[in-house]
Each structure stands twice: as C-alpha cells, then as structure tokens.
Design a protein around this nucleic acid. Structure first.
Lengths: 336, 336
DNA sequence: GAAAATCGGGCAAAGGTTTTCTCGTCGGCC
DNA sequence: GGCCGACGAGAAAACCTTTGCCCGATTTTC
C-alpha cells in the first residue's frame, strides 16, 4: 500500500512498554493483564509506563492467539428500519457490557448479499452472529453447521433447533384488550395489516382469544388491509358505514391507529369519550403526535435485542439456548 | 475460557489446504491470492481443494501481518435515530465496495462513552473512523493526533482541519423557494424549529437570501418553535390570526410541515390550491402520510454517508481531504 | 554445448501478544 | 549449614498468514 504521510509511523507496542519499564514483554503482559505472579511494585511501574506512553494493546494479535475476537456480527434484513434499530440498540447495550462490539451488515433481505456478509463475518472470525429481522414471519436459517453460534432476533428462524428471540404477539393483543375492557369498552373492533403477515394473524387471533376470556365477542371480523394511515381512515369509514356498533378499536400498529383516530375525529366522534383506541409499537414519533396521543402496546424491541445478545454471549461461552424465547411487551397508557 | 462442546474443534486453515493439495503453505497462499509465479494447474488444484474443504482465510492473521484490518468504526451520537440511519446506510454502501466492514458504536452524545468507544476501536486497529452526528451544529473534534483518519458526517467537526461532510442547508431553502415561486407563490412564510439550532438559523437565512434573489420579501419573520406537529399547527393558527397574507409556507422539517398542512386543512384552506407547503427531510413515513403528500427537500443523507466513506477510504490510502465538504440536496415533488 | 535466463515452488521470517515452562534467589526450617 | 518451597521474572513457543529470497530444473541464447 501507499505510506501514510504525516501520520505516526509506528504505534507503541508492549515491546516499547517493556523496554522502558526494564522488564521482558512477558512480564509486561502479565502486569497489564493482572496475570501471573509479580511484585506489586513491578506491576505499578509497568502500568504507569504504559499510561505514559499511551499504550493500547493490539487486539488483532491478541485475537490471533486466543481465538476470540470479542466481536459479533449483526446481519439485519431491515435496512436499519423501524424494527431493526431498537433491536440493535438493545443488542449493543448487552454486548458493550461484555466488552464486545458489533459489525453491522445490511442484508437488504437478499439471500445473496446475506451469505456474502456471512462469509465476510466468518473470515473476520466473529465470535457469534445476531440476525435481526424486520417482521415476525419466520425466516430461513443461516445453516446448522456454522462454526459460531447464531441468534435470530424478532424474525424467528424456521429451524426450531436455532435460537430465536421473538415478541409476544398474542400477549400484545391481550394487553390491549385488558386495557380496553378496564376502561369500560365492550364492543371492540380490529383494524390491522395484511392478512399475509404473521403479526396480523397472530394479533387478530390473540384478540379473539383475549376477548373470549372476558366473555366478549369481537365487534365484527378483523379488517385486514395495509400498514398505512390511509387504510386506518378508510377502515373507520367502512366501520361507520356498516353501522357497526363499537366503542373500542384495537389497531395492529400505531400508524394504523393514527389513521383511525384521525378518521374518528373527523367523523365527529369524540376521543377517548366515545371510542377507545389502542395501537401496537409504541413508536414515539407516531404515538405522541396523534390526537389524542395513543395508548399502545410496546413490543419490547430493545429488550429483544438485549436478550438476544445475552443468549448469544451465553452460547459463545459454551452454553447454548436453542428454541424460541418469547419476550413480553407492556402497555404504554396515553390518552386514547 | 471454557471449551465449546459440540462445535467443530478446529477450522480448516491454509495448512490443511496446502497439505491436501500437496504444496507448501506459501505456495497455497500465493495460489489463493493470485500472487507469485505458479503453474496454472497448481493454482487450480489449490483452489479446488480450498473450495472442497470450505477454507475461509483467517483475516485476523492477515491483518496482523499487513497492518490493515479493512475495518472502520462508526461512532454515532444519534442512537440510530432519524439522521444517523441513512448516513450509516450510505456509508455501508461505499465501504462494502471497498471490501470493508463497519463497527457500530452508539455514543449517545456522551463524551465519556464516546472516548471509551474510540479507545476500543483503536485497540481493534480499525483503519479509519466515521463520526455520524445528529444535527448540523458543529461538534467537538475527536482529536488531531489520532493514528487513523477520521471523517465527520452531518455534524461537522469544530476543528476546520478535520474532514467533514455536511448537507447544504442554504441550498435546501433555495430549492424550496424556487419551487414555490415556480408554482406561483409570492408571499412565503417560514415555520421552523428552535432558533438555537444551526439548521433553523441557516434555513431561515437561506430563505431570505433566496427570496431576495427573486425580488421577494418573506411574509413575516420566521416563526421559531420546536420540531413538532403541534407547533406546526399552532404556528398556522398564529399566522391566520395575525391575518398575515401568505400563499406559501416553507417548513423547517417534514414533521412540522405535516402539522402545518393539518392546521391549514382544518382551517378550511384548500391545499395546494390556496397555499403551497414545502418541508425538509423527505422522511417518507411523514411526507407520504400527510394530506396532501408533502413536497419536500431531501438533504441527501445517504449521499453524505457514501461521500464520507469515500473520503475516508481515500484518506486511509494516504490521500486526506481536510475541510468541509458540502453535499447538495434535491427537491422531491409530491402534491403539496 | 555451455552459460544464462526463466519457471515453479519451498523455506523461513515477521507481525504483537499471551502463556507455559524454566530458572535463579531468598527465607525459613530442621 | 543444607534443603525445600515460594516468589519473581525471563525465554520461547504458539496463533495463521503473507512475502521476500533462494534453489533446482528446464528452456533459451549465443
């Protein structure tokens, strides 16, 4: 390569520290890492020399020797979107606690790109991999015979022997129902996303289930559509036109819920007096801007990230946790 | 550490490939990397053995030897928020083209965390660092005498000797004005965020500047507030109450613009017939959900990310580009 | 036909650290 | 006074590749 003009030619290595402290490299290493048997005075001297010289250990060399890089790869299929981000933040949280750091790869939901990234990550000898999905639909496994452990976050692996960490979709519906019922709603409608999405189906099923436990029936069948505000508004109009009698709406997402509140308000219905609305996601931007601000179920995405990283660390240390791990969500009460 | 039960004990190294191909490790290395002088038949044989064995080179060892890790660190202060994400995506784009990969660290805008991450990155011998900010206000430099090059993306470094890549704030205002004027607007008001933010001030100044070039005056002073929909609606009410005569509004952000369109629509003003609205950010979620969908200025955040990574790669190869680099935005015309 | 050039490939050093083994010294104990 | 154990520190191997240098064999050149 070209030389780098103007930049310090050589960084200070443990050799320099050892020389200046008047000890051997081995001793210097022990002093700095708190290993071996050394006089306290020697340790202190080496340490102070290291500080003075601004010594930073070369982790590349260390990794080569120990076989551990203290590095994990995160492959996201979400292009850093709505779901990947909180998961990643949570994961970074737990990883940092273990002095680890994450490589970020954007798979763009393209298997080719994904396996290319996988290869690159393995070449770099990551200690483990987190696959962060963007929907609750299961995704194909990265493979069973990988040399490092893998944890699937949010989107579970289609292979049940893999370790997956997912949100509690049915539980989300239950939380919504409990809140609506507690605030006196009895006729609860459901407006949600495409029926082709697992989360739509699960939440709809969870709703029926939870209502049944309360001795209630849904106010009409679930209205499947798209995850947009426009569909939320449209679905409300449909509900009103059908003269469906309802006093609560459980929406499959906050964006949807925002459309629903707009639709209701513009139809002259007073919120939350006449109708209660609950969303899912706790996406602050949307939930807080809605009128009134949305009560919503937080799926605990950060927690999913944290948990994934914790399970990965455990697996790296030889204690894998195969199977699907469900992280509970929680209700965030605002004004709707 | 603990041993890892059930996992392949040893990965296949170049030694294994060489042995099975009946050549020395050196020769195997040359064959796989296309170096040295070897018979084509030998190269092919080594390659096929490598494939067969599923050989993946150990990049840790390679890095130790060459001194390059093909790795960069990205420190974001944005907790993966609105601005950091597109910048990161752009950066990853350019980096992948150079066969590089990024470590992601969340600085949380905390100097302590930040310098801790910096230290960790340097220990891992990254080839360079990108600092991705979350506002256009300048931020403090990471330091001048770092052993690797640094590029500041979006938030410029306060040290002009550093390399920064920023958006064109004044240009954004100009694009908005040109569009409004072209669609026949003459009395243009400005609703924007807190005056304490550089971007508010710059965009306001840019607006005045661009209007002046068209021989126009702003319709009233800029209304500084917060980056919320509520402020957008409130500011509209204020404008109407003051009986300010206006037929266009330039909003400092899309969120704001959404509040403005809602406020205008609810006041019975027809959009875009009576008033034209232009936002800034091109945040699809907001811009597309607004009624009508927002015309807005895209600041080119992904391009900032790409450019940052390119400049970083250049710097890594010994050709630094100190100073501030401005990336132009572009107008996205929708219906408002 | 002999010297020279080319070709194909092996050998070994290097890169920065950790870790095991070894060795010398000192104090204490019988 | 001699032995043994503990203590403190050094020497060297090992981690896995890359690469410069060298050497034997084959081909080319007068």
């Amino acid at each position: 390569m070209t030389e780098e003009p103007g930049r310090p030619a050589r960084r200070v290595g443990i050799t320099d520290v050892a020389a200046k402290a008047g000890v051997s490299v081995g001793t210097a290493s022990k002093a700095l890492n708190g290993r071996g048997r050394l006089r306290e005075e020697t340790r202190a001297r080496v340490r102070s020399v290291a500080d003075e010289l601004g010594f930073a250990p070369n982790n590349v060399a260390r990794s080569l020797l120990t076989g551990r890089t203290f590095t994990v790869g995160v492959i996201t299929t979400d292009s850093y979107g709505r779901f990947g981000i909180p998961v990643m933040r949570g994961a970074e949280d737990s990883l940092a606690a273990g002095e680890m750091i994450a490589f970020l790869c954007d798979g763009r939901d393209d298997p080719i790109r994904e396996s290319h990234h996988l290869r690159k990550l393995l070449e770099r000898r990551v200690d483990g991999i987190i696959v962060a999905g963007r929907s609750t639909d299961p995704r194909r496994s990265l493979g069973e015979d990988l040399p490092v452990p893998v944890v699937y976050a949010f989107s579970p692996s289609s292979n049940p022997k893999d370790c997956s960490v997912v949100s509690d979709e049915r539980g989300a519906a239950r939380l919504a129902v409990e809140h609506l019922v507690k605030t006196g709603r009895r006729r609860i409608a459901h407006i949600t996303g495409p029926e082709s999405h697992a989360s739509s189906r699960e939440r709809a099923a969870g709703l029926t289930e939870a209502l049944a436990e309360q001795g209630l029936e849904p106010a009409g069948p679930p209205l499947f559509g798209s995850w947009t505000e426009a569909w939320g508004r449209f679905a409300v109009a449909q509900l009103l036109r059908a003269e469906e009698d309802f006093d609560g709406v459980f929406c499959g997402s906050d964006v949807l819920a925002r459309g629903v509140t707009d639709g209701l308000r513009e139809a002259g219905i007073s919120l939350p007096d006449q109708v209660g609305v609950v969303g899912v996601d706790n996406w602050a931007l949307v939930a807080e801007a809605a009128r009134p601000p949305l009560t919503t179920v937080d799926l605990g995405l950060e927690e999913i990230g944290r948990r994934s990283a914790e399970l990965l660390l455990k697996a790296i240390n030889g204690d894998p946790s195969p199977g699907v791990h469900v992280v509970p969500g929680h209700l965030v009460v605002r004004e709707s």
